[in-house]
Design a protein around this nucleic acid. Structure first.
Lengths: 208, 208
DNA sequence: TGCATTTATGGACTACGGTCAATAAATGGA
DNA sequence: TCCATTTATTGACCGTAGTCCATAAATGCA
């Protein structure tokens, strides 16, 4: 398993908004601990109570900062929570090596995502919900969480096509939609996701 | 094209909450026009402004009723809007006849859904979002909107299996997840859906 | 030391979804 | 006619997300 981060530039662009360490001009510097305290509070409280039951006041109280300090760093609760949960997760998107057979690689990739969803699936669903009525957040969420996984699967499928594991006329975009859609659909509708589902999806995609 | 309504009993159970015409006991009867006025206002305002920009006050003002009258009939804005948009749509789920070849039938079915989404896809996405933080509404939305379409596709796939258009070892549940998931995924991520996507999905499902 | 600039804090403020209670109005039945 | 019952209206109320503002504190620079 290697590590793949197709969005380093996006992070960099985003982080400039939110990074205190590299500002030269005058003015009081940002409290270096505030952002970390808020992200830690977000993870703890959201895992504990669920996204919709975590209020801004609870987050700032737990982090020991004022309301405005939060809004100086993130434009909304959704952006803070995504930042807290999916910074590490998005950087460390698992990417199977090119030598693994396609069906095995896809099964493994999906199994790891599903394992992650067992812990934070509820939070993820709430973020998808928040993205539907906030186009700015929708774009950021798509770039940081959805697109990297889509890219990995499409690369995997293209490699499989060159190796003859997948017929050359299969439409990669639609296949990727169907693969990711299956797990979003099950997740949004509260259906279970596990290794079995990962195997069934991969088997159907790669059936001859 | 026939008409299929697998959830008449669910409607009936729901409607008793919300139907004034058949109550025998004493007491002031419900205003027969209020519900229709609210549903009409919901459709007009949501199509006009988008779900999240329609306030309860705007709905009751447009319908000429009080706030409490709305909440006597629906437990939330989401339930009213779903009722307004998807009553007729859910009753008239298109269901291709059993003689049509599977790939054709699936293409046709998906094309009609996608056509519907062109007009009300934004509203549908907002309802999916509302369902993520409201388990009661999530259940109702699932029963009234998601499950009927899932049932139709699974029946279609099973018929295709008995006719030999689909290998007998294909997993119908996972296939249904992948089919519906593809369009949810594209819809939630703001990607276009049209006849072309319907054809590509059906072709990949039925590819030999 | 002083000035410009930026951030932190606390509290007031708006808009919203949803609840609640008081009062009036409309019905069936005694 | 009176009563029990149900609904409609009105307006108060609560908790929340997000904004705004005054004031204090921390920095670079002159």
């Amino acid at each position: 398993m290697g590590i793949f981060n197709p969005l380093a530039s996006v992070y960099a662009a985003f982080m400039t908004t939110n990074d205190s360490s590299k500002r030269n001009g005058p003015g009081r510097p940002r409290d270096a601990e505030a952002a970390d305290a808020l992200k830690a509070a977000a993870i703890r409280l959201v895992r504990d109570r669920g996204y919709s039951r975590v209020t801004i006041g609870a987050l700032t109280d737990a982090a020991g900062v004022s309301r405005q300090t939060l809004y100086n760093r993130w434009p909304s609760k959704a952006e803070l929570v995504m930042d807290a949960f999916y910074d590490a997760a998005s950087v460390n998107v698992p990417n199977p090596g090119p030598d693994v057979p396609g069906e095995t690689a896809l099964t493994q990739f999906l199994s790891e995502i599903f394992e992650h969803l067992k812990r934070d699936g509820d939070c993820l669903r709430s973020l998808v919900a928040a993205a539907q009525d906030d186009t700015d957040f929708r774009d950021v969420f798509w770039q940081r969480f959805v697109a990297p996984r889509s890219t990995i699967v499409k690369d995997l499928l293209r490699r499989s096509q060159t190796r003859g594991e997948l017929a050359p006329d299969r439409d990669i975009d639609i296949l990727s939609n169907m693969i990711h859609g299956a797990f979003w659909y099950r997740s949004l509708n509260g259906q279970p996701l596990g290794v079995r589902e990962a195997q069934l999806i991969a088997r159907d995609v790669f059936r001859q």
